[in-house]
Design a protein around this nucleic acid. Sequence first.
DNA 1: GAGGAGACTGTGAGCGTTAACATCCCCCAG
DNA 2: CTGGGGGATGTTAACGCTCACAGTCTCCTC
Lengths: 329, 329
Amino acid sequence: MADVAKVAGVSHQTVSRVLNDHPNVRAETRTRVLAAIDQLGYRRNLVARALVTRHSRTLGVVSFDTTLYGPASTVYGIEQAARDAGYFVSIVSLRTIDRAGVHDALEYLAEQGVDGIVVVAPQRSAARALADLPAGVPMVAVEGDHAGDVSVVSVDQVEGARLATEHLIGLGHETVWHVSGPSDWLEAEGRIAGWRGVLIAGGRPVPEILPGDWSPRSGYQAGQKLARMEEVTAVFVANDQMALGVLRAFAEAGVEVPGRVSVVGFDDVPESEFFSPPLTTVRQDFGAVGRNSIEILLRQIEAGQDLPHERLVVPPLFKVRASTAPVRR
Amino acid sequence: MADVAKVAGVSHQTVSRVLNDHPNVRAETRTRVLAAIDQLGYRRNLVARALVTRHSRTLGVVSFDTTLYGPASTVYGIEQAARDAGYFVSIVSLRTIDRAGVHDALEYLAEQGVDGIVVVAPQRSAARALADLPAGVPMVAVEGDHAGDVSVVSVDQVEGARLATEHLIGLGHETVWHVSGPSDWLEAEGRIAGWRGVLIAGGRPVPEILPGDWSPRSGYQAGQKLARMEEVTAVFVANDQMALGVLRAFAEAGVEVPGRVSVVGFDDVPESEFFSPPLTTVRQDFGAVGRNSIEILLRQIEAGQDLPHERLVVPPLFKVRASTAPVRR
DNA sequence: GAGGAGACTGTGAGCGTTAACATCCCCCAG
DNA sequence: CTGGGGGATGTTAACGCTCACAGTCTCCTC
């Protein structure tokens, strides 16, 4: 910067002013400085700036397995929204979710001087780990526990499950079986709650849950069991990947979908429209989740974080395709 | 830091030494300092450290649409490897790939003071944009153009396509049709080259390519065309998502797989084992790609980047499942 | 008991930027 | 013609850390 100042024949402060679009710089001086910058190939040092301004313009994101469609889409949405707002994004992807892991990640980001943190905390254990967060750093949780002490943005899982289950009941099915996600996941719990709620409200029997782990394989195994049960006519599967496994198991066992059994998934992955048959499912607007979480976070950062915690719920969208049909009498 | 020093009754330098595990600190002093840190809830400021050491211990990653399985997995692998090596990862996900976008992203990261950059540049245009990279920042490209002026780590696409095509030829198919990826993508080109190479080497006719865009829908559309062509007995699809679309189109048209037509995909997404039928495909080891790229990058950073550029090719793995069978005479 | 080699600790400078304040100059109102 | 307001610029001091160097103290060797 000093070099640029020398070449342009001004002080380093004027160079700084040009770089920060300060109004009180003569047009001619500005041109001269810009020319010097160009000539020297000067690039400003954001680290030094962060040191004095105490703002890094970097946001931290803590997530779990960004290979999964849900987290990947959420993180993508967050990243886009952050960059649009002029912020960098520093990501920590956890391999396993445990309190220590989340805590370390948070501490790690806080040391790095991020201005705020978004935690994609879909597990109960992760949500709990937010309790001992680094003080002084604004934070928002995505898909987290709404009981905690932070702002939360999430898709309404209960509502999504309700839509799915009601759709199946509406088609005349006596009751609906459920292949769930892993028990620690908040999303899995929400989907169970929504499903169970509809059944109970309608006075329907509540079948035993078939537990899965989000993977197609676990769906496949659940599907094999369901295929052997004559009484099953409708299944609500907690995500599309497992639904694919269920469909596969049904296909192998000669169980027709939607002829004998109707199947509904959750997520609306891009593939689900091309499953056999195309899957009726619940779409989550991950882009909206990302945008909203960044919006709330930035508001907290600007306000100095003594804002009341917000709870924002994004509504899901139900997509009817070809894997559901009226019950066959 | 000064506060900690005061409480512990030492100089700020000694605090720094404790924080950096310097050997020459008396055990008792160390304990005292640690106690003071704990008492004050002190957290070191990595920004200030980066300013003086001129190393941020942050790596930049530029990628394209991290919602897609390939890029998501690659970025995940990179992030894991980087964190294991004690580095942060700052990510920029591009919405569109063009020279200006890549250039801006690179410049953006360089200003932020990253120690090195990994560019996931699967398109020809992105690879070209690396030409005007910010000088002085070590860089490695993943899935990039091997002709450029940077180190490149990639999966051997040509070999993968070769394996797929030879497998089909080996099953007695006269020739193999191909649903390709978008023309600008290097991976699409590599897969075309491998496929074409085998056909030409074997003196087989080379059918016209059906162009796709990686999406299941484009595969579905190609599948509809292929289903109408009596002479088609084998199809090599450039990724699993499109292969799903092809399978769907075939199912709708009553074309049996693998009875009448054999289908091979590429990527081995977790779902492909549960397609109908389970998909024969080519697996890419994204974890290895991530680890290797970080390894090369760190070597360049430590050496001061005047190392010769490296080219590392990760071999693909062929997975035979149930979507391919000997040709029916 | 002197000399010296370590081990341990402290002092001061400086990394590249912005904030705060000081200065200069021009122009206009009174 | 003069005072003052404000635009344009410069000067100085941080920001929180590490590096280089200078001590001080202890203990061992001859």
